[in-house]
Design a protein around this nucleic acid. Structure first.
Lengths: 236, 236
DNA sequence: TAATGTGAAGTTATTCACAGCA
DNA sequence: TGCTGTGAATAACTTCACATTA
């Protein structure tokens, strides 16, 4: 028996949908900022860069927050999505590795405005410790445990060089962090129950390069393919 | 008739596979650096953080580069993947928007080492123009066209604030750039034939927050679900 | 009547499990 | 014998198309 109430907290939201909810949230905020009170799935889909069928299917996993014949109330839907993904609450975050990228992350205003509060910046380099970045003092990596306990940190960001990433992750996990955002170009292994997401700048460029290469070969490849078909076809 | 030779450049590689090839490439490089000459699909899968069946299926789309009973030659496979994704060639790149993130990207050594060469840094802010970042002078955004033509740039990186992203993208597309990596927290629309990939720092954190929230609710939710099942079950 | 919410169909991706080969 | 490469099975995701409802 798996009968469930409509507000069941265990209702499963597909991972692909979860990944798009923040996009919808941002699009709704943009609509609200331009004074729009109500929108159709088509309007919102355009603002979010997806098609409307996908948008409606995604929203249907959260509940039924629209009005047939009318559309969605922008503020109401925005609140529902924010609540669903947890950005109505405050998330203390630590950033480990204050190089160029760590600096940029510490200064990134988009975190703060979405409920993420950088409570500490940590680095292993004694030269950096004590410096202030984005109004926060850089502290020794050793202080991780104390900071995590003091602020009840659940999310850690790794912006170290690749070689340090696994040991930083291990330490984070040992101390009780259960979500990690990894910017280091390295695979980090973690136990079950800990989530890791990876952002890899050069991988993104490599994916673009692959498609770019195919486009560049397009004319040639089309000709080659035609030739191949002719030859193969003749042989078959 | 769609008969094709084994070296057919038009062979389709699934998008999900394309996105993992750079990960395999990095894992192979790490293996090579530690002196390993040969590896099994299991070894490489562990190094890349995937399971071995998926790895073998992915590699099967490129061709048959392993030896049954033995495994893969690390250098040979590495070369084949590099060639497939196009990182054996040089890709000139322009970065637009030299704020904190633009700085970090300009300084990121991982680009250069993977065949991406930052040929120009552009910004609209006159204060920044003329400054040198990572050994490259910051130039006016207006110079985009001249730079793209001079260096035959196909890939552009947007690291501007959100409001500027669409107009920068429009300009890039008008000038002939066909691949864009967008770090601005905004959806950018481009015509068919142009690829855009988006890296959004706060979206990644929001996805983690969603799962974190579910974990935090875990004990409660499990209890609630059990209660709900009892009640619902009793009612049914 | 206009737009949501959703079964059903279609597509893509993952995993299984083993035939085939060095 | 051991490991690759791959059909077949399964799962996840997307899109279609329309019944439903304010």
């Amino acid at each position: 028996m798996t009968t469930r109430s409509s507000t069941d907290a265990n209702r499963v939201i597909p991972e692909a949908t979860v990944a798009r909810l923040p996009v919808y949230l941002r699009a709704l905020t943009a609509l609200a900022d331009s004074g729009i009170r109500t929108c159709s799935s088509e309007d919102l889909a355009i603002a979010a860069g997806v098609n409307s069928a996908k948008l409606r299917k995604d929203l249907s996993h959260l509940g039924s927050y629209g009005t047939r014949g009318v559309g969605y109330d922008v503020d109401y839907l925005r609140y529902q999505i924010a609540r669903e993904i947890g950005v109505t609450q405050d998330w203390p975050v630590v950033i480990v590795g204050i190089g160029n990228l760590g600096h940029a992350l510490a200064n990134y205003s988009g975190f703060r405005s979405r409920g993420f509060r950088v409570v500490a910046l940590l680095d292993a380099d004694p030269q950096l410790i004590g410096q202030t970045v984005a109004g926060v003092a850089v502290r020794a990596f050793d202080e991780l445990e104390a900071i995590v306990q003091e602020h009840d940190v659940a999310i850690g960001v790794i912006a170290t060089p690749a070689v340090a990433a696994q040991s930083v992750a291990d330490r984070m996990v040992a101390i009780g962090i259960t979500s990690i955002l990894n910017f280091a170009p390295a695979v980090v292994a973690v136990p079950d129950g800990v989530d890791v997401r990876k952002v890899d700048l050069s991988i993104e460029l490599q994916i673009l390069a692959y498609h770019e290469q195919r486009k560049a070969n397009g004319a040639d490849a089309a000709a080659a393919a035609a030739a191949a078909v002719t030859v193969d076809g003749g042989a078959a």
